[in-house]
Design a protein around this nucleic acid. Structure first.
Lengths: 210, 210
DNA sequence: CCTACCGATCGGTAGG
DNA sequence: CCTACCGATCGGTAGG
């Protein structure tokens, strides 16, 4: 085999490992993900799996990065480019978010909700990476909200962090009801709650300061 | 030692095990809870710990029961008896719920949020017990909401399950912000969101059917 | 409640 | 990417 082909194959193998890891981690957690199980499910040796990452912690960090890329592809990149900035884009972003969770792209639901709950009581680089991803997403939401304020579609005294807080809560509830109760009416409840938050500005139902 | 004293001491030891287990499980999860760690932290042998429960699964189920008792003591039983049924009791219940999470009674935050996220992708008796506890709590909330509808304090077309959904979401967000981001402004955000849901009925902001 | 032990599995390494 | 191996720890048991 030429070196080039080996490199390409190694990359492919690495991606297979990461993809399967996201599925396992969404179901059993990033700690429940074990090298031995991964190896046997992929028909590899443990050393073959670990060789791509070095340590389990590096694997966990790689899985977090892959989950962030998956989310970016499935949610923000699904918002049509032609939508004007401001409230229309914010609404479309939230709808893409609901639709992503409804599709159950990962068998255990939202990767970052599961990872946050698993690592919020711990320390270390894995926890820090999870916190960082949540912070990035909140920043993204904040930009959309600010734009909607500047276009006048949201009132000038909108408390962006309060609105983010409530949006996150609604989505946490969606994941909770889908995963724990297998409640198929949860997406409709989510959309109804979103409509209350973002859909009827002129009835004064947007979150505001104090 | 007389048998009576032995029995009392055994009960006391068992309670010590369960109390410490709740703390560990709130931080590291019900699977991260291991017999060996528990034994060394309590200055006992593994066999001494396991003798009280038989299997790890039985220990996990006992911890779930204890966490439910703790929640009952700290939340619903904190609502003053003199409060009239209906909206005042529902509001007091939600305030007790926020205050409980704010106090950080368990170091890892809400036991049942962590347990639900950990076991929602699994099967078995532990998962079933967690689902059952969530169902009981939702039933409790539903009774309070229905009473507030019957007193006329909530509108007759109130969608109780929608309101429960949004209350759960707000509390999931509270736990998330406290545990992952150590955000001390989260309780105030929670109360603001609760006020929007339960505080200003006459402005038509209660969740309604369709 | 203890000591002493079981097989299985963990993350990781050596050497190829 | 493999085989073969390491010490540590897992849940659990025997016997007292």
């Amino acid at each position: 085999m030429s070196p080039r082909k080996s490199v390409a194959e190694a990359r492919h193998t690495r991606q297979r490992i990461v993809d399967r890891s996201m599925e396992i981690a969404s179901l059993e957690g990033l700690e429940g993900l074990t090298i031995g199980r991964l190896a046997s499910e992929l028909g590899m040796s443990k050393a073959g799996v670990l060789g791509h990452f070095g340590t389990k912690e590096s694997l966990q960090l790689a899985v977090i990065d892959a989950a962030a890329e998956l989310f970016a592809r499935q949610v923000p990149q699904q918002v049509p480019d032609h939508l004007p900035p401001g409230l229309p884009r914010l609404r479309a972003l939230c709808e893409a978010w609901v639709a992503y969770l409804e599709r159950e792209v990962l068998p255990g639901g939202c990767f970052f909700t599961a990872a946050a709950a698993e690592f919020d009581g711990r320390g270390g680089p894995v926890r820090d990476a999870i916190v960082g991803m949540h912070a990035l997403w909140q920043r993204d939401l904040r930009l959309h909200i600010r734009r909607a304020v500047s276009t006048g579609e949201l009132p000038p005294d909108t408390d962006a962090d309060q609105l983010i807080y409530e949006l996150i809560g609604i989505m946490l509830a969606l994941n909770h009801y889908l995963q724990l109760h297998h409640d198929r009416s949860a997406p409709a409840r989510t959309r109804r709650a979103l409509h209350r938050l973002l859909g009827v500005f002129d009835r004064g139902q947007i979150a505001r300061g104090s």
